[in-house]
């Protein structure tokens, strides 16, 4: 007579001999995702991160900036104090802003915020450059960040005024 409490040989969770041998249905994963595989992946990650810095150095060595062209930005008569005008310099892909400050100074910077590249605007009331995306503030006289997430200054566009016309003649990345 068989014990009724004992599970049938082929039923789930049985303790019958030679049945639990097939319990490890995840054995393929155990072979793939183990301690040794983890360490090998970690080494691969570390090496990949190290190698990922190389293209920046290569591009930095190749990308020495050439001489800048002299480009007309605006006529002074079209730019009253407290006003600004946007332009592109040195290429069409580099947006920039020329500001005639409330103090009468002319300042020009590349207008892509150094945080996440949103365009900055001139705030006449506060006499600052403002990036509205994450409330980044830049000093209009130096281009350096004064508040918010940006950590670097805006690239300075060197300007010249000739016969009432403002020209862009160069650019400085780190200044002041």
């Amino acid at each position: 007579m068989t014990c009724k409490k004992k599970l049938g040989r082929n039923q789930k969770d049985t303790n019958a001999d030679m049945i639990n041998l097939v319990d490890n249905v995840n054995r393929d994963d155990d072979l793939k995702y183990n301690r040794r595989a983890f360490l090998k992946t970690a080494v691969g990650t570390s090496v990949a991160l190290g190698v990922a810095t190389i293209p920046f150095s290569v591009k930095a060595m190749l990308g020495v900036e050439k001489d800048y062209e002299r480009v007309e930005i605006a006529k002074l008569t079209d730019l009253p104090e407290g006003d600004s005008v946007v332009f592109n310099y040195p290429t069409e892909k580099d947006p920039a802003i020329l500001v005639h400050t409330v103090n009468g100074d002319l300042k020009a910077y590349n207008s892509a915020c150094t945080h996440l590249m949103c365009p900055v605007f001139y705030e006449k009331e506060q006499d600052v450059l403002l990036c509205p995306c994450h409330a980044g503030y830049f000093d209009v006289n130096s281009g350096h960040p004064t508040a918010g997430p940006p950590q670097r200054e805006l690239p300075l566009i060197e300007i010249e005024v000739d016969n009432g016309i403002v020209y862009a003649v160069g650019r400085q990345y780190r200044h002041g």
Partner: peptide
């Protein structure tokens, strides 16, 4: 790289490698 600090960039590159 974004700040055009090429000298310090090279240092970081060497440390990383």
């Amino acid at each position: 790289f974004l700040g055009r600090d090429y000298e310090i960039l090279l240092t970081y590159n060497v440390i990383s490698l």
